[in-house]
Design a protein around this nucleic acid. Sequence first.
DNA 1: TTGGAATGTCAACAAGGCTGACATAAACTG
DNA 2: CAGTTTATGTCAGCCTTGTTGACATTCCAA
Lengths: 167, 167
Amino acid sequence: MPEGRSGQGHGGSSLLFLTDEQLRQGIEAMFFAYRGFTADPDRILAELAYGRAHHRAIHFISRSPGTTVNNLLSILGVTKQSLNRVLRTLIGDGLVISKVGELDKRERHLYLTEEGEALEAKLSDAQRARMRAAYKEAGPEAVQGFKKVLEAMMDADMRRAYAKLRD
Amino acid sequence: MPEGRSGQGHGGSSLLFLTDEQLRQGIEAMFFAYRGFTADPDRILAELAYGRAHHRAIHFISRSPGTTVNNLLSILGVTKQSLNRVLRTLIGDGLVISKVGELDKRERHLYLTEEGEALEAKLSDAQRARMRAAYKEAGPEAVQGFKKVLEAMMDADMRRAYAKLRD
DNA sequence: TTGGAATGTCAACAAGGCTGACATAAACTG
DNA sequence: CAGTTTATGTCAGCCTTGTTGACATTCCAA
């Protein structure tokens, strides 16, 4: 660690069992782990000329079939223009269908087609396989802690969105 | 969950205490938590016309002062062209200096300037503050599990890079 | 019925990944 | 010493995915 930092941390963390070094390790663990987390789906997507953005859209449409563009927007945290580009290609390629809302015709309700479901399953299977291996290696107690820390790391609105999906 | 999936999972996970639903929750937790993880530095960086790529370079140079371009490359997992673009701006802005190697004059050793250290500290403080809050909320046992699962999720070479930084 | 709010689409731009080609300098090897 | 490999930097061009701005449609409330 470069000199001139260890003494000036905010709030004397050594008294609270949390040194800057421990925190830094957690930060780096998140960085490296996230790479692993996305690696397998990324490989599959690259063959299909899709990206992570497509995966995210497919995942959450699969999770909540019939969700609206606006709802998806708030979950994904991107602009509607960004999401729209992704949705356009997915709809164009026949992986997603968009139905005009019956009550409110401004809304579009999104569903995966059979083909969309197939890709979703392929991507999910790859990602779940890694997750399953990690869970098994770490053990059930570790998994509890893992989720607990991740939840605490979320912004309040994301924690809400996350909890909502658990229903 | 859309029909046609729950029965066909790979390997009857219910017998192994890991249902697809549990795994999916972990996947979503990673997604939402990573957003929180990067949110605070992102806000700071946006004001300075820098991005996450700059943050990553600054972080690992701060972590291993004098590291070479090649070493940084393997840690970050990007192409040299991509990294070079970022380093060029950081060097141009006086946040990083590049010294020709003494033993091997082909190598460039990278260091943060005082100004670079200042930005690093600002970014780190923000990120550590969130990490510290999450750790405190979740408790020390949860933190153990958190790290354990993240390590198990990394690719082998990333786990090596991660371990190497812990020395 | 008219104006504002909500929803979604299209266009254009920027950041930051990527590949490929190539230059330079230093180190290594036979 | 000649030739090869290694480390780095650079240019050009492409793609994905973020952004803002402009605009059309629909709904709703004054």
